[in-house]
Design a binder for these strands. Structure first.
Lengths: 112, 112
DNA sequence: TTGACGCATTCCCTTATCGGCATATGATTG
DNA sequence: CAATCATATGCCGATAAGGGAATGCGTCAA
């Protein structure tokens, strides 16, 4: 078995930086494919491919306008990620828990 | 170029379900490798490999105790993910924005 | 109609994943 | 020391991602 497909779920789809960038642009509003090509400096085919992945996990929706395809964000599938992370959010402030962490940090700096 | 390495960042490391399960167990407290083998029903080598990935992105820290390696959670690297998602969190409740979404939903149900 | 435009799809190539299995390594016990 | 336990590593096979380049396809303008 190889790595899980990028279209398995939002976790995998969003692991790719380019797709996150696409979503970030969509967060500002609808956009046709060409916009991503221009704004992200990617080749058109790659943009279409990334959009396809995002479509398959339902993170984006398309609307046809003439010869353009206008994409827009559908954030719903991100909710599970956010909720999973929320469990951990409380923790990265509790640095006081164990002495080990402090020791580890010192070690880490030595190894630099 | 192939897909970004799983050790590129927490986004990629956490895309794998097994690794999320490991982190979930660690959220309850420190644990030696054998625990994951038993609790997740995975082969020992695969567990070690997943732990290696988590170590490389610094999501877990190890401590040697006799012949065991006790792993513990280091949630820090998850912070960027949480913050990225926070931008979208506000949105999945605003379903009132456009009529298109409603239409899309209807279409989606037809296609079932 | 024809041609240009906006996108999607396909093929090729390189690379890395993940699982299974065997084995190496370090610590512990008898 | 020898045997065993707890883990880590190495190797193999199968799978698919992602970029590049070429091409297919529906739409619109002249």
């Amino acid at each position: 078995m190889a790595r899980a497909a990028t279209t398995t779920d939002a976790f995998n789809a969003v692991a790719e930086l380019r797709r996150r960038q696409i979503l970030d642009l969509l967060a500002q509003g609808e956009r046709p494919v060409g916009d991503f090509v221009d704004l992200l400096g990617l080749a058109q085919p790659q943009v279409s491919k990334h959009l396809r992945v995002l479509r398959e996990v339902d993170l984006v929706r398309v609307r046809e306008v003439g010869r353009q395809r206008v994409y827009r964000l559908n954030p719903g599938p991100l909710k599970p990620l956010y909720e999973w992370l929320a469990t951990y959010e409380r923790r990265w402030n509790e640095r006081f828990d164990s002495m080990d962490d402090v020791l580890d940090d010192l070690k880490a700096k030595e190894t630099d």
